[in-house]
């Protein structure tokens, strides 16, 4: 009764106090993360959107608002479309090849034959290297003077195929991609190996009793049970593929003649060598939009698969 007759501010204070008592721990545990995340992630993200409507060059005090100019420019920017095409080639080949090789190796090692640990250790090893190291090592492999690829081709009598792989606009993108596939396959392999542990043996045996041959068992029993794993791996490779930067930047810097330019290398150059900050922000949002769409599609697919 006494509480009910208290003036309103008192009641609110009581409410706040109860709220604080109940949620204090949650707030305090989350506070440091949230502050850091808000200042260095959410705020710059909003700034990216804002900058994409300006023609800022990074130096002037005033940022001129130019409306949708940067977005209109996207459509007439030939280099962007070239870069996007390279990203798509990268994503398609760079997803399929590691998946096929990774799945093959995982199936071959699925029953842990002799030498299993050695094979697994070596197959996964490139995955721990930094993209810079991978790029430098593979840059050497492709070197026209002392690279082991040309030396190997010469040794087996295929001198005609020898070339400066990274200097040739026709081959450069695929040469860089091969290095990326070399590095990425171990990751896919290990995930598939984990996925195979969960494939039901009973179902495989039942299929065999029903007379399914090995390929039918693999395709109709094993693969469907790996659907979730395949989904995750595809999503990760796809998202990584659209924002790929390191290995290309170190190996070719996008060259020769933009033959290996992708959106991320193009964005980097616009932002930090051309100082077209506004347009670079717009380009970065293109990468972001593609990644977001890919992520959401795959989350949806996964949810549908689980329900």
């Amino acid at each position: 009764m006494a509480e009910m007759s208290l003036p309103a501010p008192w009641k609110e204070a009581g409410h706040a106090r109860r709220h604080w008592a109940r949620y204090r721990a949650g707030y305090l545990f989350l506070l440091p993360s949230f502050v850091l995340y808000a200042v260095f992630m959410i705020y710059p993200f909003i700034q990216s959107i804002y900058l994409s409507f300006t023609d800022w060059n990074g130096a002037t005090a005033v940022k001129n608002f130019v409306g949708l100019d940067n977005y209109r420019r996207l459509f007439n920017d030939g280099l962007l479309w070239t870069a996007l095409r390279h990203n798509i080639i990268w994503v398609v080949i760079g997803t399929i090849a590691p998946m096929v090789i990774g799945l093959l190796l995982a199936v071959l090692l699925g029953n842990r034959p002799r030498g299993f640990t050695l094979f697994r250790t070596v197959y996964f090893m490139p995955q721990v290297l930094s993209p810079v190291v991978i790029a430098l090592v593979w840059g050497w492999i492709y070197n026209p003077v002392f690279g082991i690829l040309n030396k190997g081709l010469d040794a087996v009598g295929l001198e005609s195929l020898s070339r400066g792989w990274l200097g040739d606009p026709t081959f450069a993108l695929y040469a860089v991609l091969a290095a990326a596939i070399w590095a990425e396959t171990g990751f896919v392999f290990v995930i598939f190996l984990a996925g195979l542990q969960n494939v039901s043996r009973d179902l495989l045996e039942a299929a065999m009793i029903d007379g399914a041959n090995a390929w039918q068992r693999f395709w109709n029993v094993t693969v469907p049970q790996l659907a979730n794993v395949i989904n995750v791996v595809t999503a990760l490779l796809l998202i990584g593929g659209f924002s790929v930067f390191d290995i290309i930047f170190v190996m070719t810097q996008g060259g020769p003649a933009n033959a290996t330019e992708v959106i991320a290398t193009y964005t980097y150059k616009e932002a930090f060598t051309q100082n077209r900050v506004g347009y670079a922000a717009t380009l970065s949002l293109v990468i972001t939009a593609i990644s977001l769409i890919a992520s959401i599609v795959f989350i949806r697919l996964r949810e549908r698969g689980e329900s």
Partner: peptide, 30 residues
């Protein structure tokens, strides 16, 4: 117990889905 937990989860999930490039340029100037 955290008020607005679902909203917070979405905000953090967004950070998992966007690449570094989405904040790279303004972060440099910040």
């Amino acid at each position: 117990p955290v008020p607005g937990r679902d909203a917070l989860l979405v905000v953090f999930l967004l950070g998992l889905m966007v690449p570094f490039q989405s904040v790279m340029v303004p972060l440099y100037y910040l």
